[in-house]
Amino acid sequence: YKIYPYDSLIVTNSISVKLPKDVDRTRLERHLSPEEFQEVFGMSIEEFDRLALWKRNDLKKKALLF
């Protein structure tokens, strides 16, 4: 996945969300650098992957990456 800054990946309720063209809309968190991922989620990507799907989705919603 290509890395993008968190600010360019957050999704708000506005209709005209302009995400970069090559971003996987269903896995926005994968486009964060490991350092920024840790900062946003408070855990590593590996720890995040071990969580239940509902928990990952809940965290993504709170981080505006859903």
Score class of each variant (00 low, 15 high):
Lys62His: 09
Ser14Pro: 14
Glu39Ser: 13
Leu28Met: 05
Val23Gly: 02
Leu51Met: 09
Pro34Ala: 13
Arg25Asn: 07
Asn13Asp: 13
Ala52Met: 08
Thr26Pro: 03
Pro34Ser: 12
Lys55Met: 13
Phe37Glu: 00
Ser33Phe: 03
Pro5Lys: 05
Phe37Ser: 00
Lys21Glu: 15
Gly42Arg: 12
Phe37Ala: 02
Phe41Asp: 00
Ile15Lys: 15
Lys60Ser: 02
Ser16His: 15
Val17Ala: 15
Asp7Trp: 15
Arg27Pro: 01
Leu51Arg: 03
Asp7Arg: 14
Glu29Val: 01
Glu29Tyr: 01
Lys60Leu: 04
Asn57Leu: 11
Val11His: 08
Leu53Ser: 10
His31Trp: 03
Glu29Thr: 01
Phe37Cys: 03
Ser14Val: 11
Thr12Asp: 11
Lys62Pro: 02
Gln38Pro: 03
Asp49Thr: 06
Asp58Ser: 11
Leu32Ile: 07
Gln38Ser: 12
Leu28Gln: 02
Glu35Leu: 11
Leu53Lys: 09
Ile3Trp: 06
Val17Met: 08
Lys55Leu: 12
Gly42Asp: 09
Pro5His: 04
Lys2Thr: 14
Arg25Asp: 07
Ile15Arg: 14
Ser16Met: 13
Ile10Ser: 04
Ala63Gly: 04
Phe48His: 00
Gly42Trp: 06
Glu39Leu: 14
His31Val: 01
Lys55Tyr: 11
Asn57Gly: 05
Arg50Gly: 12
Pro5Leu: 04
Thr26Trp: 09
Phe37Val: 02
Phe37His: 03
Val11Ile: 14
Val11Arg: 08
Leu59Thr: 02
Glu47His: 09
Met43Leu: 07
Glu36Trp: 03
Ser16Leu: 12
Met43Glu: 00
Arg56Lys: 10
Ile45Glu: 05
Arg30Phe: 03
Asp22Pro: 03
Trp54Val: 12
Glu39Met: 15
Ala52Phe: 06
Glu46Lys: 11
Leu51Lys: 05
Arg30Trp: 03
Val17Phe: 03
Leu9Met: 04
Pro20Cys: 04
Arg56Ser: 04
Phe66Asp: 08
Lys55Phe: 09
Leu19Met: 09
Ser44Glu: 10
Ala63Asp: 01
Leu28Lys: 03
Ser33Asn: 07
His31Gln: 01
Val40Cys: 05
Pro20Asp: 06
Ile45Thr: 07
Phe66Tyr: 15
Phe66Val: 08
Gly42Tyr: 08
Glu36Asp: 11
Tyr1Leu: 14
Glu29Gln: 02
Ser8Met: 15
Asp24Arg: 04
Glu39Val: 13
Asn57His: 08
Leu51Ser: 04
Ser44Gln: 10
Ile3Met: 06
Leu64Ile: 04
Arg50Glu: 14
Arg27Glu: 05
Val23Asp: 01
Lys62Gln: 10
Glu29Pro: 01
Ser16Arg: 10
Lys2His: 12
Arg50Trp: 06
